[in-house]
Amino acid sequence: MKLALGLATASLFLCACTEVPEATTDDPVLARVHQRELHLSEMEGMFPPQASRADSTVIIEAFANRWARDAVLLWESEQNAPSDLNLDRLVRDYRASLVRSSYEEQLVSAKLDSTISQQELEAYYEATKEQYQLEKPIVRCLFVRVPYPTPEESRLQELWNNGKPQDTAALADYTRSYAEVALLNDSAWYGLDEVAQQLPEGTLTPDNVNSKREFSQQDGTHRYYFRLFELKPRKEIAPLSYVEEQARRAILHTRKREVLERTREEIFEREARRNNITFFSPDNWEL
């Protein structure tokens, strides 16, 4: 009811505000390109409930303009289509592809086991790790960026220097309150460029990172703390923890392909047993 009311209202606006190419009807024509026409009914659901006359006019004009551009291109394409273009076959093939893809998605959803054990993940990584060469350096580190002047600076300095487990927890509490950036997981890997972007330009680079394993510095707006634990340069094999999600996706992709291939074969064999598949000898072929 609301949609019909919206169209009726828009129709009134159209009659009042634009030139209608034909006598006013319940479904006025908005635009025409050669023999194709755009009718108001095709815009059902596009008008907000409280649209004003001006709003509806803008919506109609914008949609009609886009429609006309598409329709002109379609007409031009039809005029220049190759004489041997088999549209019926293209449409049939495209429909078959959509139907098959939809069914394959159902099969994957129903049959794919997405559980990946740590043992399987590690085995896959060991077998394929040569493909996980790093494209950029990565680091295990601690990094904190806080505003300057620094809130409770002496406390932060003490917590940063001590490195005791209880102080690590306290440091995390401090950074939740004051830090703009805090990387405190010493087992996590980060792209060196990602960390460097949080520092003044040129502070940390692939060329100087080994000589700047630990430092703190400040500029006019921030204070920075950095501690390097491990560096893996470009072209080394990435550690599993850094590529874990990528490896998991690869495992699931392989499983998906196997599910589809196995199911296709099962369906083929079933229909062959039911005598629903027939191959004809070359004598029957018309070449």
Score class of each variant (00 low, 15 high):
Leu159Tyr: 08
Ser109Lys: 12
Asn161Phe: 07
Gln246His: 10
Ala172Arg: 10
Ala23Trp: 04
Leu171Arg: 08
Tyr132Thr: 05
Arg89Val: 00
Glu236Thr: 12
Thr57Met: 11
Val108Ala: 15
Arg257Ile: 12
Ser117Val: 13
Asp113Trp: 06
Thr175His: 09
Thr18Tyr: 09
Leu184Lys: 00
Val72Cys: 07
Pro149Gly: 06
Glu244Pro: 02
Glu236His: 12
Arg100Asn: 03
Tyr132Glu: 07
Gly163Val: 10
Glu22Met: 03
Arg53Trp: 14
Ser101Cys: 03
Glu266Met: 13
Ile237Met: 10
Leu260Gly: 12
Ala272Gly: 03
Ser211Leu: 13
Leu204Lys: 11
Lys111Glu: 14
Arg36Ala: 13
Glu201Ile: 05
Ala250Asn: 08
Arg36Gly: 06
Phe143Cys: 13
Ala51Ile: 05
Ser114Pro: 04
Glu245Met: 05
Asp186Gly: 06
Ala170His: 08
Lys232Glu: 07
Met46Asp: 02
Gln35Lys: 12
Arg53Tyr: 13
Leu14Gly: 09
Ile60Gln: 01
Glu158Val: 06
Ile60Gly: 04
Ser102Asn: 01
Asn284His: 15
Phe268Ser: 09
Thr150Asp: 09
Tyr190Trp: 12
Pro49Arg: 01
Leu287Trp: 02
Asn161Arg: 13
Val146Asn: 13
Arg66Trp: 02
Leu7Ile: 15
Ile116Asn: 05
Ala250Asp: 09
Gly220Met: 12
Arg92His: 06
